[in-house]
């Protein structure tokens, strides 16, 4: 009765091989199909734009050749926004890299990662806010000039869009509450540390008031306005001791 066992085993092996090989084959087909679709669309686009330099009869289409030469020589479509969009994959890559550095900075409590993120994305306010908050969070006596400069540059980079301003304010509030909480948790410090350096205190409450006001401007929520007023009142506590 060993023969049927061998047959079963063989069939099983063949099935496993077919299954695994089949999966790879299917995957390969899928990828080829994707790429074929992309290439077909590219060909259709070339034809629609009149960029095929070879006519059906094999002669040279001079108009198309001239268009290609012009584009090659200028490296531009003639519209800066379109040029930026066509190279936006570089921005997507940079954003991803900067995000990874920002995560590493908070994980390792090391602002040097944020220096790299800022160097890569100098006009992105997010990493300035991150660096300012992280400096306040990890140092007992942070360089407040640098912290304030980061916050001010972040403010200057903020655009007029409603969604962007809300995100900016919400991120700022989250971070300042995080800094405040961290200072309160430090042994033998708590509010005492926060109040010891009036600049740290003013930075925390001043920023919280600013962000709550910004949020209130965008959302129209009275509760945000009241929070802003409360934080402004808290600023009175900020005295060097």
């Amino acid at each position: 009765m060993t023969r049927p066992r061998w047959v079963t085993l063989l069939v099983a092996l063949v099935l496993v091989a077919l299954f695994t090989g089949g999966c790879e084959f299917l995957e390969l087909m899928l990828e080829e199909s994707d790429q074929a679709q992309v290439e077909e669309t590219a060909n259709d686009w070339v034809e629609a734009k009149g960029l095929n330099p070879v006519n059906e009869d094999g002669s040279v289409d001079t108009d198309a050749a001239a268009k290609i030469a012009k584009r090659a020589a200028t490296g531009s479509t003639g519209d800066p926004e379109e040029d930026a969009a066509l190279n936006s994959d570089n921005v997507v890559r940079d954003v991803r890299q900067a995000e990874e550095w920002a995560e590493a900075a908070f994980r390792d409590r090391d602002t040097r990662y944020l220096d790299q993120a800022i160097a890569l994305r100098p006009n992105d306010w997010a990493y300035r806010l991150d660096r300012g908050a992280l400096n306040m969070h990890i140092h007992f006596a942070p360089d407040m000039e640098q912290v304030e400069k980061d916050f001010q540059v972040a403010d200057s980079l903020l655009g007029p869009g409603r969604a962007e301003r809300i995100q900016f304010a919400e991120k700022g509030i989250r971070q300042m509450l995080w800094v405040q909480e961290a200072l309160a948790k430090k042994p033998d410090s708590g509010a005492a540390v926060l109040w010891k350096d009036a600049r740290q205190c003013r930075a925390v409450f001043g920023r919280l008031a600013l962000y709550q006001d910004m949020l209130a401007d965008q959302t129209g929520r009275e509760s945000d306005r009241q929070m802003a007023a409360q934080y402004r009142a808290d600023l009175d506590q900020c005295r060097d001791q």
Binding site: D83, A84, N87, S88, W125, G159, A163
Partner: peptide, 16 residues
């Protein structure tokens, strides 16, 4: 400056 840096350098909208 590359056009993408000039025009798309601002903070991305992560929620969107």
């Amino acid at each position: 400056q590359p056009p993408e840096v000039r025009l798309l350098g601002g903070a991305p909208d992560r929620e969107a």
